[in-house]
């Protein structure tokens, strides 16, 4: 059983919601990323989404775009990111890690080479924002053969027919995008989310996790009442940006933001 599935099974048994933080690897510099990941785990992360910095992150708002830019100054590559996870795994064999990014760097590395390296480093899932399920047949089998989950996004504008296709291909969890727009946008509307999750529940057994627009304990708790997990990115990445000149202060900042969400979710 994949670490992601194990974690969601355990959470379900405990009646708890998943807390899924996102950070961009290499931001503000590559040597900090593994330490940040451990800080996220200390604050209660159930799954870590590690962003692959990309020059053209079309689904991301300004906060994560700038994080990509800060990382790319250091020339962070997909192979470096895989090494970061390998280093993380030396001290953490349990927390699932999902790579989130865009198709270009993966295609450039080569699908088979990427899938091998990702498995060997202890990566558990892959979310490629610009890989639609129609193209998942190119990549899905290579990932599946290595026990790597393919995770997909569903948006408020996704038709039911298309959502069914996505659910059929999805593994690990389903990432529901809570608003029309890019990451770091407006605040989430829990009632609207609940309305959109209901039909998805009928289509899939996958845990339904919600991201985009969750910025504090209150919004996390609100979404946690209707979803199986909450995903938080820009709220964390903006703290990294604020302290980019003093990276030694960042782990405590991340723990504070995420810890508040953990408490609110578990309350």
């Amino acid at each position: 059983m994949n670490r992601i599935d194990q974690r969601f099974a355990a959470l379900k048994a405990q009646g708890r919601r998943a807390l899924i933080p996102y950070i961009t690897a290499g931001d503000p510099a590559p040597e900090h990323t593994v330490g940040f990941m451990h800080a996220l785990v200390r604050a209660g992360a159930d799954v870590i989404e590690l962003g692959v910095p990309f020059s053209d992150p079309m689904a991301d708002g300004p906060v994560i775009q700038k994080a990509c830019e800060r990382a790319l100054v250091h020339g962070v590559r997909l192979t470096d990111l895989i090494e970061m996870v390998r280093e993380f795994r030396r001290d953490d064999a349990e927390t699932p890690v999902v790579l989130m990014g865009y198709l270009n760097p993966v295609e450039r590395m080569g699908l088979e080479a990427f899938a091998d390296a990702a498995r060997d480093a202890g990566i558990d899932g892959v979310l490629l924002v610009d890989m639609p399920p129609e193209e998942a047949d190119l990549m899905g089998p290579a990932l599946k053969a290595r026990g790597l989950a393919s995770i997909f996004l569903v948006a408020p504008t996704t038709s039911r027919a298309r959502a069914a296709t996505i659910c059929a291909h999805g593994e690990g969890y389903l990432y529901y995008v809570s608003l029309k727009g890019v990451t770091g946008g407006a605040s989430v509307d829990a009632a609207d989310v609940a309305e959109h999750l209901a039909p998805l529940r009928e289509m899939t057994e996958l845990p339904l996790c919600v991201g985009f627009g969750i910025r504090d304990g209150a919004s996390a708790a609100e979404v946690g009442r209707v979803a199986d997990g909450v995903i938080v990115g820009s709220a964390l990445v903006s703290r990294i940006a604020e302290h980019a000149e003093r990276p030694e202060a960042i782990p405590a900042e991340l723990e504070a933001v995420l810890g508040e969400m953990r408490q609110a979710l578990d309350a």
Binding site: F54, S55, L72, G75, R77, L78, N104, P105, E107, R108
Partner: peptide, 9 residues
Amino acid sequence: MSDEGGQVS
């Protein structure tokens, strides 16, 4: 057009 890491030029 992209570099060896797949970043768009």
